[in-house]
């Protein structure tokens, strides 16, 4: 407390002044009731001018914010719901796509296998045909060459032994 020592000084000063004029520190008079009336009027005036209108503004704003918050929350929930819906849809579509791909793959494989088998078969058939042809031609060639073998061997003989020995 600073007032401790400073009050000693105040005391001195005050005593000096008191000699001049008796001070009235606790001087109750009509100021008291008038001040009370004035303050009651102030309360009423400020209630009408300040507390009511501005309080209404504050409450309205609080309501507005609360309403906005509620709306935002509802929208958020809606968005959330939409999101989950889309997500499930997406998952389902993905699954469907997967099955489609799988079936397509299987089909393609089946087709490919079939074609390969067919082609192989065709090739087999052709090869066999070709083999037969070859065999046939070989045989015909053998058949055609048979008499020539005879003649050629006779010629070889005549060449080797001489014409007189042959026949």
């Amino acid at each position: 407390m600073i007032s401790q020592w400073s009050l000693l000084l105040t005391t001195a000063v005050a005593v000096v002044e008191e000699v001049e004029e008796k001070g009235k520190l606790f001087d109750f008079d009509a100021t008291l009731p008038l001040m009370m009336i004035q303050l009651v009027v102030l309360v009423l005036v400020l209630d009408a001018l300040f507390y009511k209108p501005l309080g209404k503004v504050l409450d309205d704003r609080a309501d507005y914010i609360r309403g906005g918050l509620g709306e935002a929350k509802a929208r958020l929930a809606e968005a959330e719901e939409l999101k989950t819906k889309y997500e499930t849809e997406l998952a389902q579509t993905r699954r469907e796509a997967n099955t489609v791909i799988a079936t397509a793959k299987a089909d393609a494989q089946k087709i490919a296998a079939g074609q390969i088998a067919e082609t192989q078969q065709a090739a087999q058939v052709q090869r066999e045909q070709a083999q037969q042809e070859i065999d046939k031609q070989k045989q015909s060639a053998f058949a055609a060459l048979e008499p020539q073998i005879e003649a050629l061997s006779r010629q070889i003989l005549t060449k080797l032994l001489g014409a007189e020995l042959v026949k």
Partner: peptide, 19 residues
């Protein structure tokens, strides 16, 4: 509480009932 003491002091100085 200190202020009450101060008020008493002020009463003694400025509104002394025994003056």
């Amino acid at each position: 509480l200190t202020i009450y003491g101060l008020v008493v002091a002020l009463i003694l100085l400025f509104a002394n009932p025994f003056a």
